[in-house]
Computed example of a mutant assay.
Amino acid sequence: MDFINRLDAIHAGVRGNKWMRYFTTFTRLALAAGFLPAGYVKIIGERFTDLHNNQPMGHYLEALHRTGYYYTFIGYAQVLAALLLLIPRTVVLGVLLYLPIIFNIFILTLAVRFEGSLLTSPLMVIACIYLLCWNYDRIKFIFPFYTPPPIPVISNNKFPLWFFAGVFASILAVGFTVTHMYNILPRNTLTDCERQCGDSENPGACKIFCETIHTNGQDLNSALKVYEQALKKDKR
């Protein structure tokens, strides 16, 4: 308890300093400014940089850009994290979303030795950790050294039939949805991809789709466009 009380006292002292509050506000704004333009570029579907594809980071970003709406999803996540940081009541939620994204960028930067974010990405990771420390009073309940006050538990041995029925129904619904949501898949190899063509309404278009990916090396979106064009030609 002395250790926890000491941490609470240190935190209260830091939070009471005017200049530390100014610095915290600046940190929040700086982090938000770092993600807003980066996220917006991804949302509108533009390539993030003009790096050459043969450059290590450019190679990665080109592949990321070809992932379709996953690329857009990252952009929305970055913008959402930035907006949450701008609102005092949602700062913690914003940091918890921001930190894994920027930490991933930091590790990527080190892995490909990209000098463009070699300085900024570790500083942004440290800034996120600082904001978590600033909001220690709101997150201390998750630490193993903190013992929350006991909550009375009401004993109940009745089998929760409707709960487990809902779990079972959810598993069936998810399983059915993910296995029937696509009429064609790229699969892992050309042979595996062409196996699905036997059950396809248009085996010829299906094989063209598989060859576009596994033989011609095109991305999924390009292969889907070729597939749709082949279907239209067949209908004519």
Rank of each mutant, 00 (worst) to 15 (best):
L96V: 13
L96M: 06
L97K: 02
L97T: 01
Y98Q: 10
L99C: 06
L99R: 02
L99D: 05
P100C: 10
I102N: 02
I102L: 04
F103Y: 13
F103M: 05
F103N: 12
F103W: 11
I107C: 07
L108M: 08
T109L: 05
A111L: 08
V112P: 15
R113V: 08
R113L: 10
F114M: 00
F114P: 01
G116M: 03
G116P: 13
S117K: 02
S117I: 10
L118F: 01
L118H: 02
L119I: 14
L119A: 07
T120Q: 11
T120N: 10
S121I: 08
S121N: 14
P122L: 02
L123D: 11
L123P: 10
M124D: 11
M124F: 09
M124I: 03
V125W: 00
V125M: 01
V125Y: 00
I126P: 02
I126W: 04
I126A: 06
I126C: 02
A127I: 03
A127R: 09
C128P: 04
L131T: 10
L131F: 13
L132V: 14
L132S: 04
L132F: 06
C133V: 01
C133M: 01
Y136T: 04
D137T: 07
D137E: 06
R138T: 14
R138D: 13
I139G: 00
K140Q: 13
K140F: 15
K140W: 14
K140I: 15
K140R: 14
F141K: 08
I142F: 02
I142C: 01
F143G: 11
F143E: 10
F145N: 11
F145C: 04
Y146T: 13
T147S: 06
T147A: 03
T147Q: 02
P148C: 06
P148N: 05
P149Q: 09
I151G: 06
I151Y: 07
P152I: 00
V153C: 00
V153Q: 00
N156G: 03
N157G: 14
N157I: 15
N157R: 13
K158E: 08
K158D: 04
F159W: 12
L161D: 06
L161E: 07
F163M: 07
F164Y: 13
F164Q: 12
A165S: 09
A165K: 00
G166V: 05
V167A: 04
V167G: 07
V167P: 09
F168K: 04
A169Y: 00
S170C: 10
I171V: 10
L172H: 07
L172Y: 06
A173K: 12
V174I: 05
F176C: 07
T177V: 03
T177P: 05
V178E: 09
V178N: 15
T179Y: 12
T179S: 02
Y182I: 01
Y182F: 05
Y182R: 04
N183C: 02
I184L: 10
L185S: 15
L185Y: 14
P186H: 15
P186N: 14
P186I: 08
R187V: 06
N188K: 08
T189Y: 11
T189M: 11
L190K: 13
L190C: 11
T191Y: 07
T191P: 08
